[in-house]
Design a binder for these strands. Structure first.
Length: 497
RNA sequence: GGGGCCAUCGUCUAACGGUUAGGACAUCAGGUUUUCAUCCUGAAAAUCGGGGUUCGAUUCCCCGUGGCCCUACCA
């Protein structure tokens, strides 16, 4: 291959604006970004919008924002400028394919003129019936090169007559196409299995094959990282490079991301859009770390990596060949690890919007500091914040009295202990009403009174929360404050009487 | 149907041709805790099948099987 170490590596991420950033796309972008970064090369973003019918409003903006959120911003190509607007930057633009139509037309002509491509006027009806005939005859479906036999005069007449046409690439017959893929090694295809590809559609737009090859050449991309679904198309691209007499870039086809049933990761079987994960409260570092390890790992037992570490350790030669199931359980684990690593301030800033969404009315006198502190250690994703803490925000807890009694205790004992506890707590000063000192003092009180932890702490916690599961009674009392806590304990006593 | 790619615990994966096949997530059990979560300890759990090559195959080769991708005027 022409690729060598002296050459500056230029990679690209080239999504189609047909929706949102797919998590598989996120990984492709990540690898391309990391490879460029570790080699002090360039990483650019190109928009492949050659299929007008599939274009989705706002998709580019969305793509760019998701990438930015993940920390994978390109410095060249289609970018978000300082005013948060979509812009283009770089010397090889435009970087949006719909703005490059004349370029593709020009190169398609070059191929026509050199006899490597030809006009095709076949109607979709003819193509359809051709395909059906071949199918019923048990043959592989392929274009029959019908228009290849057209004379110059025929073509001119049809063109003058403004007949609809496409331009097809003339694939050489029965020729072996060999190329090298960094992750899969040498790959061979026979052109007998490759159809004469349409490179310019009847609407004048190029197909992916022509557009990506022309752009990658013109934009000096020398390392193509993309999903494995492109592997079968690669010989077409290699043929195109050769027809133009251009150097063939290095390819790296990434293993696919899979659903639980091993099919290609898709919607319907769960979220695939990066923004969905963002909205659920996954941290970008966690998502990036997780997808980085789907298809690659450095061979050590380390699993937590920052972007900088990935840039240091990433090795294209260690990219896996087999597809990887996108396992949300493991993602949750990564996310909880990253949430725990956040500073309390960072956590508060990130989690606050979710808390406000989950809890409609937050009274001002509550100790939210404590709530955030507790939740940071307990939740897997930001959207879970406050989910089991609704008791904090209601004044009348509805629970069955029987649940107030610890499994190894009795109602009578519970009542008695609660009364003793209230007497104790009433004597505490406001300044001592903190989880840590409450714990110390209450445990001491229980011991000195000759009581059992469970006989006191379970009813205390339950009286305060009305829930079987919750944070510790000390933490809950801290959040609620002295007045509210005592109030709830008294309510419990009333119920027990 | 044709072509291509791939194949280690349920999942993500490690293992110069020589390891009791290692780790992580999930699961289960025990411990800590008033409960849940956390935390600690432990358990169960894999080389798709068959042939070769080799003193010795997870590892190399072939065949089979299975899965996936492509086979569009979609990317």
């Amino acid at each position: 291959m022409f690729f060598n170490k002296k050459l500056k590596i230029r990679t690209r991420f080239a999504p189609s604006p047909t929706g949102f950033l797919h998590v598989g796309g996120l990984r492709t972008a990540l690898y391309a970004y990391v490879l460029a970064e570790q080699n002090k090369g360039d990483f650019l973003l190109r928009i492949e919008d050659t299929d007008q019918s599939r274009e989705v409003e706002g998709a580019v903006d969305n793509l760019l924002k998701s990438l930015k959120w993940a920390g994978l911003e390109a410095k060249e190509g289609v970018i978000i400028d300082n005013d948060d607007k979509i812009a283009e930057k770089g010397n090889f633009g435009p970087y949006t394919q719909s703005k490059r139509l004349e370029i593709y037309q020009k190169y398609a002509k070059v191929l026509v003129d050199s006899g490597r491509a030809y006009y095709c006027f076949c109607t979709s009806e003819r193509l359809e019936s051709l395909k059906n005939d071949q199918k019923s005859a048990g043959q592989a479906t392929h274009y029959d090169k019908h228009c290849l036999s057209l004379t110059k005069e025929d073509i001119k007449a049809k063109l003058d007559n403004e007949e609809k046409y496409v331009i097809r690439f003339k694939v050489p017959e029965k020729q072996e196409v060999v190329f090298n893929d960094v992750v899969r090694g040498e790959i061979k295809f026979n052109t007998a299995d490759i159809d004469d590809q349409i490179i310019i559609k009847s609407d004048g737009f190029p197909t992916y094959h022509l557009a990506s090859v022309v752009d990658d050449y013109l934009m000096k991309i020398n390392y193509i990282i993309r999903g494995e679904e492109w592997l079968s198309s690669t010989p077409k691209h290699v043929l195109l490079y050769e027809a133009f007499n251009w150097p063939v870039p290095q390819f790296a086809h990434l293993p696919l991301l899979l659903n639980l049933d091993k099919s290609k990761l898709s919607k319907r079987q769960g979220d695939v859009a990066v923004e969905d994960y963002r909205d659920q409260g996954y941290l970008p570092e966690a998502l990036v770390n997780f997808v980085a390890l789907l298809g690659w790992n450095p061979g050590t037992e380390q699993e937590i990596f920052s972007l900088d570490e990935l840039i240091k350790l990433f090795d294209v030669k260690k990219i896996h060949k087999a597809g990887a199931v996108f396992n949300r359980d493991k993602l949750d684990w990564f996310n909880s690890e990253y949430i725990k690593k956040l500073s309390s301030t960072e956590f508060k800033v990130l989690a606050r919007p979710y808390l406000e969404k989950n809890i409609t009315k937050i009274s001002a006198d509550l100790n939210l500091e404590k709530l955030f502190e507790i939740e940071q250690q307990r939740i897997n994703k930001l959207s879970e914040i406050g989910n089991d803490l609704s008791f904090i925000f209601t004044d009348n807890l509805a629970y069955s009295v029987a649940d107030l009694v610890w499994k190894k205790s009795t109602p009578e004992l519970t009542l008695k202990n609660l009364e003793l506890l209230i007497g104790e707590l009433e004597g505490y000063s406001q300044s001592n009403w903190r989880a840590d000192s409450l714990e110390k003092n209450i445990i001491k009180f229980i011991a000195e009174s000759g009581l059992k932890n469970g006989d006191v702490l379970w009813p205390m916690r339950f009286a305060l929360t009305g829930q079987v599961k919750s944070p510790t009674p000390f933490e809950v009392a801290d959040i609620l404050g002295q007045e509210k806590s005592l109030d709830r304990l008294r309510q419990a006593i009333d119920k027990l009487k």
